[in-house]
Design a protein around this nucleic acid. Structure first.
Lengths: 354, 354
DNA sequence: AGTGACGGTTGAAGCGCTTCAAAGCAGTGG
DNA sequence: CCACTGCTTTGAAGCGCTTCAACCGTCACT
């Protein structure tokens, strides 16, 4: 392999070729012991100013960069938080990542990120990888109750694990989640407030906790008005295609005047519905048919009619979650808590009075 | 705080309290030496099937999880790639992250992510952190030539560093970047093709490499038609607010018929301009005034008029970049290369024939 | 001058793993 | 029956750092 016949100027050594200097080199150059160098790095207050100066000068000269893994080995822990995300393509999770990253940075920790695309196997792989890395704690976004069971069952409790976007079903873990019941209620209230009375709702696999909760809040509000969903359409998943199919199914009922609006449970689905309605009918959105989505993600915008939607405070969720991990680490008397954040309505152009 | 008065069942041990089993425990239980356990983990082909079975059973029983940092120490390297991103809020960088993550996963590596919000100090801090972690290589997104100088000067070449979204100015590093000259040209061609002849362009700080290039491509196309920008408006930054101000400044010239379109250099700026025009005039977008953005990010959609924009293949960029790092690591005769990706035009509703 | 007390510094013992020379152990051919 | 060969397996030496008991000077006090 080695064809690069070490010519005149070896401008760039292969990794590892150039000897990096270690703490021993620094100690030698500064004329102190290894332990002292370690102290100026980790417990500067234990060291005299003059010694510290000497050592710092040596570090500077040698361009010494501490060896993280060795440090972790010696100390027995890392300064890293694990973050397992369901879908980096969904802006909610990006917001969460920002929040986690920020809180971690404040605590001098780094974030190890893994993306799973909602695949259980990838979730498990990511979790195993994080366990091997010996992260100080892990944040996991979840929405499927089946995944929850598996993942939580596999957790050996060796490091804090906090659930994001999911309300823990027992008190074995901390969790931060957005009040989906409230979110569903907000959507229903909005539709009701603008005078919609024949509201359809999209129903989805019963294993997605957030969806179940949204439905509950939605139904409750309608019930409080002595009403109920004018139609319930089930879909198999939450993609735009599923939404499009649902839209197609809804069209006849819209034309028949049976429904005048829909709560789509997710922006992608909402966008799909809008697309179907627009392409197959001459109905106007929002005048003839109002649509409310959920998540406030890109799909809310990428549409001829920007969607009214329920936004979730993703960044706050991530920030709070990371805080929970740190608290669990710092406090022996930590109690697992479930933080509940409030969703909010974002009114755009897909809803209006009939 | 401590209300959970350590009752009957201590359901959950503090991290570190429960003794994790190490490779020695596994060896003991399986009745082999430590070295053998290590071999079944890292070089299974060196071990007899029967021994392997024994060891695997022991691992299973003990729930043994290898200690990553110790492994890294012993081996002298990690299985992690560093990724330093300019702005997680910009979907381009999220796409990049997805690409990097995917390529890393294929190579069995993990990604260490840091977000800098274009802050030089945070960039440097992130890079130092990654160096300490001894990542196998680093991917860095960059757009400011000043940052480039600093960062590249500080690189000691101990691990591969590849630049993303930036064309390296010498051959000391690999880089992957999208052809911004072409992108600028695409935008200009589109406007010209739909019959716009009085095209304004937004100019920005001369330190942002991509912008400089876009401008060059844009100007070249106009020049090929014996034309040039009908107006050049300079802004200090690429935010929506800057765009709004620019829009305000442009309004009189639009009304005077001096310009009929603008190439905004960035979606946020484009959205700001659109907002200004819409709120201060009765001009119609796109009929009276056409706008082309750049990046195809969220701002392209979050607007009453979805923006026509130039999209960059972020995911491909990340994927290719990670591949470059891995290649540099694997091949002794690696030559630094600069990969050039093609941008593409996404026509939405902000451009139309006059 | 002698005695403590005390902050600063040292030196060596690990942290949990990989590696590699050496040893063990069949199986072969002479 | 012995010398060899080719696999497996062993055991111990690190990897670079932190920690901590022991040690060393100083200084304040008696």
């Amino acid at each position: 392999m080695s064809t690069d016949a070490n010519g005149a100027q070896p401008r760039r050594t292969r990794p590892g070729t150039r000897e990096r200097s270690g703490i021993a080199d620094v100690a030698a150059l500064a004329g102190v012991s290894q332990g002292t160098v370690s102290n100026v790095l980790n417990h500067p207050e234990r060291v005299t100013q003059s010694t510290r100066d000497k050592v710092e000068r040596a570090i500077e000269m040698l361009q010494y960069t501490p060896h993280g893994p060795a440090r972790s080995l010696a100390v027995g822990s890392t300064r890293a938080l694990g973050l397992v995300l369901t879908d980096l393509g969904n802006s909610l999770f990006v917001d969460i990542a920002r929040g986690v990253e920020q809180r971690a940075a404040e605590a001098g920790a780094v974030v190890l990120l893994a993306n799973t695309d909602a695949d259980l196997e990838r979730e498990q792989r990511a979790l195993r990888m994080l366990a091997e890395t010996r992260v100080m704690g892990t944040l996991l976004t979840l929405n499927d109750t089946r995944h929850y069971r598996r993942v939580v069952a596999a957790d050996r409790g060796e490091a804090p694990l906090v659930l994001l976007n999911y309300a823990a079903e027992d008190d074995a873990h901390c969790s931060v989640h957005v009040d989906n019941v409230r979110g569903g209620a907000i959507a229903a209230e909005h539709l009701w407030d603008i005078g919609r009375r024949r509201i359809a709702v999209i129903d989805v696999p019963a294993t997605l906790q957030p969806i179940i909760e949204r439905r509950r809040g939605f139904d409750a509000v309608l019930a409080s008005h002595q009403a109920s969903a004018a139609a319930v359409h089930a879909v198999e998943g939450l993609t735009r295609a599923h939404g499009f199919a649902a839209g197609l199914a809804l069209v006849p009922r819209i034309e028949a005047g049976e429904i005048d609006s829909v709560f789509a449970m997710a922006d992608l689905v909402a966008a799909g519905i809008a697309q179907a309605v627009r392409s197959r009918t001459s109905l106007r959105i929002p005048e003839d048919f109002a649509i409310v989505g959920y998540d406030d993600n890109q799909a809310s915008w990428d549409s001829p009619t920007p969607l009214t939607t329920v936004a979730q405070p993703g960044e706050a969720m991530g920030y709070a979650g990371a805080g929970l991990v740190l608290d669990e680490l710092a406090n022996d008397d930590h109690d697992h808590s479930a933080i509940d954040l409030e969703p909010s309505l974002v009114v755009r152009n897909s809803t209006v009075r009939p």
